[in-house]
Design a protein around this nucleic acid. Structure first.
Lengths: 203, 203
DNA sequence: GTCTATAGAAGGATAGAC
DNA sequence: GTCTATCCTTCTATAGAC
């Protein structure tokens, strides 16, 4: 029974994740989620009182999952160049398995910035900043990185990795017209991006 | 009367643009648009029979506007480096004035890729490709650019410029925590991005 | 815990008067 | 061309039986 309950709740959560990723909060219908889970609408409300609460649960899980993906780079004991290569390889691989995450997150956050506020609040950015500085102090001198350009650099790396997935709908159309496959493009991109960035910051 | 008619139709179109940009197709309400335009719902249907048709008109205008912004770079008679500087300066300036365009377009296209298909179909990408090659043949040799990396490079440039706006909801939160203003960040980015890319492709 | 049935509200669309 | 009133469908949410 508790086993069964857990099963149903998980089934709902997974179905909701699927549908919300596909259609977003506004486009998703409780009926779609019920169908996807193989149950009826009433059960959705039994476990998660409202659509809003169900969405919040899904959103929080996804947001945490993505934000976490930016963190492990900090813990690896690698040189700056190795870290950059590691980041693009790991991050793009993750997005290849979850291509709709970027579009979903960006859209929902732009629509309701408050949703992500409390998640961001729990992250110690000043601490992260310091940690990065500690780890790569000497390298930052050797490379072309200052306190002012570090945020620019990091956002650029995120952009190079994430944007193609966020723009997948357009990009596939454009690449198709010059006979390039999206997946091949992203596979190549892991190395291209790393070399591109390393080149850009090397004095 | 024709003058007045034009006025009302424009008023509706502008109100619809505003609301669709803010809430997207699924989140927008005809009532919102009517309120924004200072008229009633019935008039919306008089000019644009359905919500779908009204949205299509707005979407097409926005998509054309954005795609056009990528083109003029091709026509300028500048060196590759000058062109890169020109691109980031112009493109980011445009997005500073229209910060919600990227998020809107990316979201709607991912949700309904067919919407952009016929617009892309009207663009001669092979011709553009050739044109770029013609213009910068010798430079491509001097720089680190091959037929395989040119798409990677161009998508990266688009990413570096567009992504911060598409991710504005998150980025403002993050930058705020380290006391950086989004607008200042984007102002700096015009030059940072250009130098970053030029550095990356220079042998 | 799960279902069927339905309430109740909201939203897109239309009829008809002016 | 513009408005008010209203239809009809869709959607979230709940009541109540099992």
């Amino acid at each position: 029974m508790t086993e069964n309950e857990k099963l149903t709740e998980d089934k709902i959560f997974e179905a909701a994740t699927e549908v919300f990723l596909e259609k977003g909060m506004d486009g998703a219908r409780m009926q779609d989620i019920a169908n996807q889970a193989g149950i009826n609408k009433a059960l959705l409300h039994y476990y998660y009182r409202t659509k809003e609460k169900l969405f919040s649960a899904v959103f929080e899980m996804i947001a945490k999952q993505i934000l976490k993906k930016f963190a492990p780079v900090l813990d690896e004991n690698l040189s700056l160049e190795e870290k950059i290569r590691f980041f693009f390889k790991e991050h793009i691989s993750f997005l290849q398995k979850n291509p709709r995450l970027p579009g979903f997150l960006l859209n929902e956050v732009n629509r309701h910035p408050e949703r992500i506020k409390k998640l961001l609040a729990s992250i110690d950015f000043d601490g992260l900043w310091l940690k990065i500085y500690e780890q790569h102090k000497q390298e930052f001198d050797r490379y072309n990185i200052t306190q002012a350009t570090l945020p620019q650099l990091m956002i650029s790396m995120a952009a190079i990795s994430v944007f193609p997935f966020a723009a997948k709908g357009i990009l596939e159309g454009i690449l198709g017209k010059v006979n390039v496959d999206f997946n091949d493009f992203m596979e190549e991109r892991k190395e291209f991006a790393a070399e591109f960035v390393i080149k850009a910051i090397t004095r």
